[in-house]
Design a protein around this nucleic acid. Sequence first.
DNA 1: CATTTAACGTACCGGTCAGTCACATGAACA
DNA 2: TGTTCATGTGACTGACCGGTACGTTAAATG
Lengths: 216, 216
Amino acid sequence: MARKSQSDPAQTPFGSNPALPVDAKSGAPRAADKIRRTARELFYAEGIRAVGVDEIVTKAGVTKPSLYRAFPSKDELAAAYLRDYDAEFWQRFEARLDAAGRDNPRAGLMDFLQSLNDRASAPNYRGCGLSNTAVEYPDDAHPARRVSEDHKRKLRLKLAELAADMGADDPKQLGDGLMLLIEGAFVSGQIFHAGGGPARALVDAATRLIESHLKG
Amino acid sequence: MARKSQSDPAQTPFGSNPALPVDAKSGAPRAADKIRRTARELFYAEGIRAVGVDEIVTKAGVTKPSLYRAFPSKDELAAAYLRDYDAEFWQRFEARLDAAGRDNPRAGLMDFLQSLNDRASAPNYRGCGLSNTAVEYPDDAHPARRVSEDHKRKLRLKLAELAADMGADDPKQLGDGLMLLIEGAFVSGQIFHAGGGPARALVDAATRLIESHLKG
DNA sequence: CATTTAACGTACCGGTCAGTCACATGAACA
DNA sequence: TGTTCATGTGACTGACCGGTACGTTAAATG
């Protein structure tokens, strides 16, 4: 028989799911990790509210008590999903900046925008899991929304920081303008999903916006 | 006793609910209209999936069979909500354009953006009901999502049309750039809800983008 | 006044939801 | 061998979900 769904590559618009951590001795993936992995796929693709815990545990090949031993509630599982999502986002984001060189923030940012542009044109693109969650859960007290809000605040600061590094006269304004473009690409990418709708204008619009701020 | 919740102004970030149509003879609002009105408030404020039909009929002061006599399903009620939303959107949008004069599309658009900027800073702002629905329902076949997609396609065309009227060298590109900014304001407005987050940069960024296209 | 017709409510359906329980299994370790 | 730890089994809960069969009311109509 060997392992079964282990070979499934699980390609998603936000990147492939990383290899599952395995138990040091037995070599078998732990139930909690399988749940995390499956929850991420389903939550991202269909939305959190649309996915039931039964569906998660069934697809993960585990059982419900395993889920509730690892996570106190579905809401907390959703929050954990978003914390993973957040961590991977920054990993990829910083990687782009590093690749372009820390002395060239504009190239790094444009690189990120180009990759977002590409992903947003993929057929099954579903935008940003963190933004989507804020739409699904208006209540600030919801644990998943908290992760989403924290992430967006951090992104906003980071963009302003990059704008300052680029030498913009009004870095906050440029940072916010860039953020609007990025969030706009997230949502319109998933509305006009195949072939990329307005998201195809992302790089061009960002370039013009940056130019405008740098000339001033 | 008199009428009870009739006086409730129902102020929402997308404008106050219009007066309920009343029966020509009895002078009483019809059940279907009360449902439509209540559904719109709840769907917008909390999301479609988050609101059950029981909550709708209870708050509307009617009963479930009245809902299902007027609408074939909850999904179709959601679609009807979005058709109303769409109609009001264009009504307000075109009104701005008319007020500025059809020979001055740029002023009309900027007027609309300014009003969006203001609404997006309101404490209970929840973005665009049509965009939110696309996030909630990834399936293209869902009746509510269909309304959302149709609306966004139409908006995209309209923005390109306005860009052309402004004399842009690449109207589609400018239209798409503006659309990214608008969608970005919808979502970040509801994430950074009070005091307006990045949405405060909407007018400035749009101005710079337009200027950039007009100089080319 | 009797009857039709339209609008509405009462009471209920089966299914699914998140979450829990006591208990069995099986491998690692001492 | 006995203990510990992660996991599975299977049954169960109470709330809620979207949706419906059927009865009631009252105004309009002949």
